[in-house]
C-alpha cells in the first residue's frame, strides 16, 4: 500500500468539502479520482500535500502518518503534484522549472554555490541532465530555453508533469492533466502517464475526460458532494447505478458506452 486515506473530512468555514472519505492506493497503480465540479477532488490533493490540514482523519504514506507534515517535507518523502490551474514558475525557462523540481534531491547551499565546489558542479550537472531527460520524455526538449509563460497550454501541462517528476516521487498526483487538451495531446498524455507508471511510480489522477480515465486507471473512486459514492474498477464504476445517476448519466454516458 502506497497511500491510505483514512476517514478524511474537511470543512471550510461552514461548508464541508469532504466528509469521511477513505480509500487506499496500491503500489504501481494508476488510481482515478472523479466526480462533478466541486465534489472535493482538488481539496483531497490539497490535504494530501498538506496545503490545508484535514478537519479530521489521517493520511498514511508508506506506513508513515504524514498528516500535518510540512508540504516540502511531504515532497521529500516522495509525493509530488500538478495543479488544476497550472502553476508553473512563469518567468523561468522550461529547463529551470524542471531543475527547481529537483531541488529536494540536491543539497548545495550558499557556500558551495558561490564557490562552485566540485561537489556543487557535479550536482548541478546531474540536475541539468536529469531535467533534460525529463523534458525529452514529455516532448519539450526543443523548448528548454523558452519561458514557461510562453509555452502553449498543453505544453505547460506537460511541463508541470516533468517538474513534478524531477522531485523523484513514488506517488504522483495529477489534477486534471488533460483539461484543455485536444485529442492528439490527450493521446500523448496517455502514453506519458503509462510511461510514468512503467518507471515504477504510482499515479493518482483527477480527470474529467472519461474515456481517458477508463482507459488509464486500474481503480477509481467517485466523489460526489464531498462524499465517496463508489469505488472500483473502471468496469464496475461504469455499471454502478448511483454513479450513473449522480454523475455519468447526465453528460458523458454516450462517451463511455
Amino acid at each position: 500500500m502506497v497511500l491510505k486515506i483514512n476517514h478524511i473530512s474537511k470543512n471550510f468555514g461552514g461548508i464541508s468539502a469532504l466528509t469521511d472519505v477513505s480509500f487506499s492506493i496500491n503500489e504501481g497503480e494508476i488510481y482515478g479520482l472523479i466526480g462533478p465540479n466541486g465534489a472535493g477532488k482538488t481539496t483531497m490533493f490539497n490535504l494530501i500535500t498538506n496545503i490545508f490540514s484535514p478537519s479530521s482523519g489521517e493520511i498514511i504514506f508508506k506506513e508513515d502518518n504524514i498528516t500535518g507534515i510540512k508540504p516540502h517535507k511531504i515532497t521529500e518523502k516522495g509525493i509530488c503534484r500538478t495543479y488544476q490551474n497550472i502553476r508553473l514558475f512563469s518567468q523561468m525557462s522550461a529547463l529551470e522549472n524542471v531543475m527547481v523540481g529537483g531541488h529536494c534531491r540536491s543539497e548545495s547551499g550558499v557556500m558551495r554555490s558561490v564557490f562552485r565546489t566540485r561537489y556543487q558542479r557535479s550536482e548541478e550537472k546531474t540536475l541539468k541532465e536529469n531535467a533534460e531527460e525529463l523534458l525529452e520524455i514529455v516532448g519539450l526538449i526543443k523548448y528548454k530555453d523558452v519561458l514557461a509563460e510562453n509555452l502553449a497550454y498543453g505544453q505547460q501541462r506537460r511541463l508541470e508533469i516533468a517538474r513534478a517528476l524531477a522531485s523523484d516521487p513514488s506517488l504522483l498526483l495529477l489534477d486534471e492533466p488533460a483539461a484543455g487538451m485536444n485529442e492528439n495531446e490527450t493521446d500523448s498524455l496517455f502514453d506519458l502517464i503509462k510511461q510514468v507508471q512503467a518507471r515504477g511510480i504510482t499515479v493518482l489522477i483527477i480527470e474529467h475526460d472519461m474515456p481517458l480515465v477508463m482507459k488509464l486507471c486500474d481503480r477509481i473512486t467517485v466523489l460526489n458532494f464531498g462524499e465517496k459514492l463508489a469505488e472500483g474498477t473502471p468496469l464496475e464504476i461504469q455499471n454502478n447505478e448511483a454513479v450513473i445517476e449522480a454523475y455519468l448519466g447526465k453528460e458523458e454516458e454516450d462517451d463511455i458506452a
Binding site: 496545503i51 502553476r87 508553473l88 514558475f89 527547481v100 522531485s167
Partner: peptide, 13 residues
Amino acid sequence: LDEKAAESMGINV
C-alpha cells in the same frame, strides 16, 4: 514567482 508551488516542489520556503 509562486510561493505555494515552490513549497510543493520541496523547497523549504
